[in-house]
Design a binder for these strands. Sequence first.
DNA 1: CACTTGACCTGTCCGC
DNA 2: TGCGGACAGGTCAAGT
Length: 291
Amino acid sequence: MPELPEVETVRSGLESLLRGRIIDAVDQIWLPAFPADNDLIQSRLSGYHVSAVRRLGKGLLIDLDNDWCLVIHLKMTGQLVFVDPDKELHFGAGHPSDSLVDNLPDRSTRTVFHLGTARLYFNDQRKFGWIKLMPKNEAQSLPFFSSLGPDALTAQLDGSSFSALFKRKVGSPIKAALLDQTVIAGVGNIYADESLWAASIHPGRKVRDISQAEWNTLLVELRKILQLSIEQGGSSSRNYINAEGQRGAYLDFAAVYKRQGLPCRRCTNPIIKIRLAGRGTHLCPICQVEP
DNA sequence: CACTTGACCTGTCCGC
DNA sequence: TGCGGACAGGTCAAGT
């Protein structure tokens, strides 16, 4: 799925598209996506305004102007796409978003929110994603949220507090530890590979063998990469699109992800792809020296 | 407890 | 063209 930059792009898009709008009704197309009693859903949502859209790690919270909020996790292939037929008229034919949102709902649509004539579609090809309706003050106590480490973009993190987060994981490969959301929140497969390349650290290096200088570099590079990706609207490897149905451009800047066989942007040797921590892992075997 | 592996699903791509 | 297997942005439960 969506990692931090993609979820943040969806969040900011939804914030401006939804804020102040009223949810009228919900269609549950595939019930397990939103497992709750339909009458309760309608009574807690219908007629209320969206007051804010928040991100916690890779999770999203849509706040209503009552005590309730929608908690959403997109997992691998989840999408939240807002379509407003009135606004669509402003786009000419051939607008880049047309082909991606014209045919909604489609077979991956799991839930549809009605906001006047507009619709918010929750699509999820692989059915891993979910939506919950919860009181705002309980959402952060969900096990997933309460165990999250600090957000990768939080201002409070510096080199030494960053390395301290990993003390618990000394025997893990650095990549596996970066992917652990209870250590640091928001990093997924793409940005783990990209940031380790940028810091010239082999993803299989054990946490205990990373020097403080390397932690410092890794933090700086990780944040630069996450910020750049947010500016580029995230990475669209396959399914990811933003709240307006548009793809992100970060992969044009990627150094290793999906670049196996292509020249390293530093040393020109070919990027390779291996399997590590159960995930496809991309690296430069020259720049990122094996443990 | 630390760490690894497989399962959850659908769709696509690659090799035979 | 068809078919089987591997793989895909994440997390969780169960295993060692």
